[in-house]
C-alpha cells in the first residue's frame, strides 16, 4: 500500500508542477496570449510540424498556446473560489460549532437548501439573470460551497470543544477569539486542506462545464471550457481542437485528485472528509 501511496503523491505532484508551471509561465512562453491567427494554417493537424505541435483551430490559432494560456482561467477560478469558500466557511463553522444557537440553525438549514439545488442549476438560474463572467462564476462558487467547509469545521469544533486542551485554555481565561483561532482551528486544519484540494479540482471541472454551456467565461478569452465549446462543431473534421483542452483538464484534475487522496491518508486517518 505504501508503494501505491508514494506513486499517488509523485504522480500528482509531477502533473501539477508540470501543468501549473507551464500555465504560470504562459506569459513568457506565449507572449501573444494564444490569440495570434495564422490564417494560412487553419485546422492544421497535430504532430505535423514544429510551428504548431498540437495543430491549430478553425481560425488558425495555435492549440498548444491556447491550452497553456487557457489554463490560467481554470487555475485562477479553481484556487480563488476554493480560498474564498474556505475563509467564509471556516469563520461560520467556528462560530456555529462553538456558540451553537441561531448560527447553528442558520448553517444547517442553509446546508439543506444547498443540497437540493445542485450547483449547475443554481448557476444556470443566476447567470441567466445577471449574465456570465469570470467574477460572477467565482462569487457563485463561493456562495454555493462555503457551506461544506462550515459543516466540516463545525463538526471538528463540536468534538474539540470537549477536549482537555480547550477546556484548559478556557479555564486560563483566554478570549474566545484566541481559543477558536489559536487552539481549535489548527487542530481542524487537516480535513479542511483535503477538502480544499479536491474542491479546486471540482471547480475547474465546473468552470469548464459552465463555459462549455456558454454560461461561463467570455468566449474571447482562451479557456479550456471555451475551447471545447469551439471545437464541438469541428469534431468530425478536426477532433484535435477538442481533444487537447479536454486532456489538459483531465490531467490537471487527476493531479489534484491524486494529491487530495494522498493528503487524505496522511492528514485524515479517521475519514472525516469521506
Amino acid at each position: 500500500m505504501t508503494g501505491f501511496k508514494n506513486f499517488e503523491f509523485v504522480a500528482g505532484l509531477v502533473l501539477i508542477v508540470l501543468i501549473g508551471g507551464a500555465v504560470a509561465l504562459s506569459g513568457l512562453l506565449f507572449p501573444d496570449g494564444g490569440r495570434a491567427m495564422d490564417l494560412t494554417a487553419r485546422l492544421t493537424a497535430p504532430f505535423t510540424g514544429w510551428n504548431h505541435p498540437l495543430g491549430t483551430d478553425p481560425l488558425g490559432r495555435d492549440i498548444l498556446a491556447r491550452v497553456v494560456v487557457g489554463g490560467r482561467v481554470s487555475f485562477f477560478v479553481g484556487i480563488v473560489s476554493a480560498l474564498g469558500a474556505v475563509v467564509i466557511g471556516t469563520v461560520v463553522g467556528l462560530l456555529a460549532g462553538y456558540y451553537r444557537g441561531p448560527w447553528d440553525m442558520f448553517l444547517m438549514r442553509f446546508a439543506d437548501i444547498q443540497l437540493a439545488l445542485p450547483f449547475i442549476l443554481l448557476a444556470m438560474t443566476v447567470i441567466a439573470i445577471i449574465g456570465p463572467g469570470l467574477d460572477r462564476i467565482i462569487v457563485l462558487m463561493i456562495v454555493a460551497q462555503w457551506v461544506q467547509y462550515a459543516r466540516l469545521i463545525r463538526g471538528s469544533v463540536l468534538s474539540l470543544r470537549q477536549a482537555e486542551f480547550v477546556q484548559a485554555a478556557q479555564s486560563y481565561g483566554l478570549p474566545d477569539r484566541k481559543i477558536l483561532f489559536g487552539h481549535i482551528l489548527p487542530n481542524a486544519m487537516g480535513p479542511l486542506v483535503i477538502l480544499a484540494t479536491l474542491n479546486v479540482a471540482n471547480n475547474i471541472l465546473l468552470e469548464s462545464s459552465l463555459t462549455f454551456l456558454g454560461l461561463g467565461i467570455d468566449p474571447l478569452v482562451p479557456s479550456w471550457g471555451g475551447m471545447l465549446a469551439d471545437g464541438r462543431n469541428y469534431i468530425q473534421t478536426a477532433p484535435w481542437v477538442t481533444i487537447f483542452p479536454g486532456l489538459a483538464i483531465m490531467l490537471t484534475v487527476l493531479g489534484l485528485n491524486l494529491l487530495g487522496d494522498w493528503l487524505r491518508d496522511r492528514l485524515d486517518p479517521l475519514g472525516a472528509t469521506k
Binding site: 479540482a201 471541472l205 469548464s208 462545464s209 462549455f212 471550457g225 471545447l228 464541438r232 469534431i235 477538442t242 481533444i243 479536454g246 483538464i249 483531465m250 490531467l251 484534475v253 487527476l254 485528485n257 491524486l258 487522496d261
Partner: peptide
Amino acid sequence: SLAGLSFPNFWLGIM
C-alpha cells in the same frame, strides 16, 4: 476510479 472522477463528463461524451 480516480481517473474517472477527473474527466469533464461532457468531454467524455464528445470523445
